[in-house]
């Protein structure tokens, strides 16, 4: 991967961050009025998850700079970009899921798990490219994490009820 590729990647990352930020700003008030939104604790937890995701992204970009030293870097620019996006979104998802801030108030966990699993398995089975395999693995990981969190929470609740 040459310097131009890395510069292009960084430029697109910055443009994407500003683009997403602008979109969030535009839809902010609309979401707050939405009954299917998130509550105040979830929004605070998501803020922390966003910070974790951004930090992971910055660490990833830093490691990418070191990759410049590597001759015949094995990944294409597309793969590097997808991995970068997955690193950020999966870090966000992991923290948000663990703090019970990923699923909206009136959203069913079961349906989210099902869709994630279906989409993930479809990509894993039908995807013959590394990018699709990565996307499939990411979806399965999120589905598994939501299910694990749900299982642990249900167990905690049962213990509380018994106690």
């Amino acid at each position: 991967m040459n310097e131009t590729s890395i510069a292009t990647l960084v430029a697109w990352s910055i443009i994407s961050v500003f683009g997403i930020g602008f979109w969030i700003w535009l839809t902010k008030d609309e979401e707050r009025d939405d009954l299917g939104g998130y509550d105040e604790r979830q929004l605070i937890a998501q803020g922390k998850a966003n910070k974790a995701g951004l930090t992971a992204g910055l660490v990833y970009l830093f490691l990418l700079q070191l990759a410049e030293l590597w001759e015949d870097f094995p990944l294409s620019i597309q793969e590097v970009s997808i991995i970068g996006i997955l690193v950020m979104t999966l870090t966000f998802a992991t923290v948000a899921i663990w703090k019970d801030a990923y699923i909206r108030l009136r959203e069913k966990e079961g349906s989210r798990i099902t869709w994630m699993l279906v989409w993930g398995l479809y990509n894993l089975i039908m995807g013959h490219t590394p990018v699709r395999l990565l996307m499939g693995s990411a979806c399965c990981y999120v589905a598994f994490l939501i299910a694990l969190r749900r299982f642990l929470r249900n167990r905690e609740e049962r213990e509380e009820d018994d106690g």
């Binding site: 009954l35 509550d39 105040e40 604790r41 979830q42 019970d100 108030l105 929470r153």
Partner: peptide, 22 residues
């Protein structure tokens, strides 16, 4: 009150400090 069950649980356990509005 329009929040998730986990939020009520967190308040009762002392893990979350709610806003005055809540």
């Amino acid at each position: 009150v329009g929040v998730s069950r986990q939020t009520i649980n967190a308040i009762e356990k002392g893990d979350y400090n709610p806003t005055i509005r809540l």
